[in-house]
Amino acid sequence: MRSLMSAILRRAVPVVRNEAPARRDPAPTRWSYRYQRLMLTPVFRASVRIGLPALLLVFIAGAWFSNPANRAALAAQVETARDAIESRPEFMVTSLSISGADVAVAGAIKDLVGAEFDAIGVAFPVSSFNLDLPSLRERVTKLTAVEDAVVRVKPGGTLDIVVTERRPVAVWRHVDGVRLIDHEGEMIGMIAARSDRPDLPLIAGDGAKDRIGEALVLFAAAAPVQDRIRGLVRMGERRWDLVLDGGQRILLPTDNPVAALDRVMALHAAQDMLRRDVAVVDMRNGNRPTLRLNPMAVGVLQGASARISQ
């Protein structure tokens, strides 16, 4: 007994303490400790605060959308709301205005718009949401007489089409008639006769309209004899002939025709060459410009030379 007592007494302090659990011990359990540490981990915390609600939301939305009736109802609702907005008076287009086009082109454009409306099954008044302005513009621009067009819906419900028409710069004579062409070589329309547009120069020949730019430069270079010009003829899709009245021709080379024409104009200015009885001025070989005289002039020339030789 003594030994037991001494053993206990040596440990007197903790024994007394353990017998008196005065207050509840507020130690967290192992799991609550771990849970708190987990919740203090930034990544985990963010995933709980943001990731979990987001996941829940996605799940609920997915469950709702998995029902086809719900999907259809939502689509119908969206459609109704859309219609309600689209058919408001401020979005309705009631009239068409075309500016910058002459009567014929305007009529063509009006027909075009009508066809477009028929194609999508609408008629004035039409909601501006139903109009496909880019495609309309494309179709208007495709008209031969139209170079560019601006298609827009103006406030007040007007479909406004502003057209830039192609401006004819020359008349092109071809086998089937006389046409107007613009500076890009695009054909604009037919005219009944050359004399309808005497203000425009005439070009002819195969491939003439593809080189309209060069032709215009040549016409400009031939300005000193403008009143005598009949037209430019494309020869063999290769080079130009400048035809003056009285059948006089200036044959221009393939390369650098403008310089050659300038030379001719210089000769004409200096010696009044083109007023003389010359049938052809051949500039095809730049080193050796050649004149062909009319038969009568040839005779006069031969007589004169015989006289000189006598």
């Binding site: 130690a27 400790y33 203090l40």
Partner: peptide, 18 residues
Amino acid sequence: ERAIRTAVQAAQKMANVR
């Protein structure tokens, strides 16, 4: 261990950091 857990948990809670 429980006592250490108590102290560490309370300090972490106050610091709001793991």
